[in-house]
Every structure is written in C-alpha cells, then in structure tokens.
Design a protein around this nucleic acid. Structure first.
Length: 281
DNA sequence: GTCCAGGACCTAG
DNA sequence: CTAGGTCATGGA
C-alpha cells in the first residue's frame, strides 16, 4: 500500500512547509505536493492526522518519518526555550511549527541559491534547476516532474546553463560546490559525525557558503540543534525584540545568541523567523 | 522608479 | 574586526 496515516500532535504542516526550510512544496487544494528524494509525495493534514501518499512503492515509510521528524517531542523542545516575552509570543503565534530533516546536498544547493533572494524566488530557481537538470519522475497531478539534480548531474553543465535558471551571480558558486563534491574533496556524509564547529568549517570551505548558509545546512539537513542561522529577518527580529531596535554588531549578536536561546536554539530561531515573516504589524 | 530579498566575497580602513 | 561596494533578478 502506498498510502499511510500518522496521528500527530502539535504539527502545523502549513507553517512547516512554508517557513523557508524547503522549497519544493506546493499546495493543491488541501494537499501538499512535493518531492522527497526520488519520490513524488502528497501530504494532507486532516484534524490530527497526516495522510501521506506516493504512487511508487513506499517501503517502510521510515524515510518519511525521518523527513517530517514525526518522533520529535515538540513540547519538550519548546520547554527549553527562554521564557522571555518575545519567545513566548513567537511560540504562541507559530504553534506546531517544526523543523524538517532534509538531504544535505539538496539543502546545500538550495541555500547556495538563496542569498538575497525572497523565498518565492528561491522556489522559482529551484524549480527551474529541477526541470532542466533533474531526472524525470512520474507524478499523478502533472504527468511528469523532476528529482532534484544530483551534484554529478549539476557538475556536468556549464555556468551559462545555470544562469538560465535565473540564479545570477550564484551560478559559479553552485557549480564550484558541485564540482568539489564530485572530486571527493568534501564528503557530505561524514559531517554528521563531526563536532558542529568542525562541520561548519568544512561547509564554509565551499564556494558561496558563508556562516549563514552553513548554519542552515547544519540545522535543516544535519539536525545540529544549536545551529542558528542569522539572516536579515533574524537580525531584524533580534534587534527589535531584544535590543530596543538598535542596530547590533555581528559579534554582539553571536554572543547574545549563543548564550540566550538554549540547547535547541535552532528551533527557537525558526519560530522567530516565521513569526517575523507572518505576524501582522 | 526605488527598495529589498533566509549572503558571500573582496578590498580598504 | 568593521564598513562599503559588487554580484543578478524579480517581488513589493
């Protein structure tokens, strides 16, 4: 059977899939449609259930439980958040927001394309990348869709081809990263076992990967719970919520972040990010 | 037309 | 270590 149902508590699928972690989900009526690995998927929230469907053989579904992080005890994580007014409000406003666990390569490639781009534009770039370079997959709704291109597929094209995917100055970065992986100069699968600082250094050796993008990959793909990506939204959030709107230097922000948000700082960060982006002023 | 977007990099102070 | 310019592209 290629349909399964999960009972979940405090799982806001809409918030999770629109919170700027993953870029290949689209909502069709009540159903979220997307690609996980080489599988087309639909996900639907009905009451306290998530109904998952894939046309291909699904195996034991462990891959989906892992992707959606279904066994995570969210309330236990939220209990570790600092009890300041800002975090309380963000937690209340984003009830049920989760962190996904994505594949490192796709996450890395997407976030190399993300710099100074709005989330809708990142989705557009990623769609083009998949259409033009990814392996075809059958999909019930639109006939044919595409997997995310492997780094081998990506490394085999030239920069012009990538620029056609509207990624502009990010094209040479992505190409260089793909080629580095093809050459075996960096093993993404080996980063799990390293301490976070070391994994971060490894990621930052890649062209186009600085502190922010490295932290996104550490958090969204490897699940380092303390990784705390600081982008323009989070800067704004921290400045207004914790520093009375004053601009704060990068060094000061880093010090504050690493001492204030606790062992699941990355989760707290996602709540602040989504809260800032969705709250009506 | 102007400003800004889940930044990184290079250079100069 | 910090400040400013540059890189494409399109939404608001």
């Amino acid at each position: 059977m290629n349909t399964t149902t999960y009972s979940v508590q405090n799982y806001d699928l809409d918030a999770t899939l629109t919170s700027g972690q993953a870029f290949r989900w689209t909502k069709n009526d009540r159903q979220w449609e997307g690609i996980i690995g080489n599988r087309w998927m639909s996900l639907e929230k009905r009451g306290s259930q998530i109904i998952a469907h894939t046309p291909q053989p699904a195996g034991d579904w462990h891959w989906l439980e892992h992707y959606l992080q279904l066994k995570v005890d969210l309330s236990a994580i939220i209990r570790t958040f600092p009890q300041d007014p800002a975090m309380k409000e963000a937690t209340r406003a984003c009830h049920g927001l989760r962190l996904l666990r994505q594949s490192p390569w796709e996450c890395l490639a997407c976030f190399i394309c993300s710099s100074t781009k709005q989330i809708v534009q990142i989705q557009q770039i990623v769609d083009l990348l998949c259409q033009r370079l990814g392996s075809p997959i059958e999909s019930p709704s639109s006939g044919i869709t595409h997997a995310f291109p492997t780094f081998t597929q990506l490394a085999s094209v030239n920069e012009t081809k990538l620029r056609e995917c509207k990624m502009g100055f990010r094209a040479p970065y992505l190409l260089s990263a793909a080629r580095t992986l093809v050459e075996g100069k960096l093993e993404l699968d080996s980063l799990n076992a390293k301490p976070i600082e070391e994994a971060r250094e490894c990621l930052m050796t890649l062209d186009g990967v600085g502190p922010k993008i490295a932290d996104c990959i550490l958090l969204f793909a490897y699940g380092f719970p303390e990784a705390f990506p600081i982008d323009v939204w989070i800067k704004k959030a921290l400045s207004t919520l914790y520093f009375r709107g004053r601009p704060v230097s990068a060094a000061k922000l880093n010090t504050f972040v690493s001492s204030h948000f606790g062992p699941h700082a990355g989760y707290a960060q996602q709540y602040l990010f989504h809260y800032m982006r969705t709250a009506k002023p």
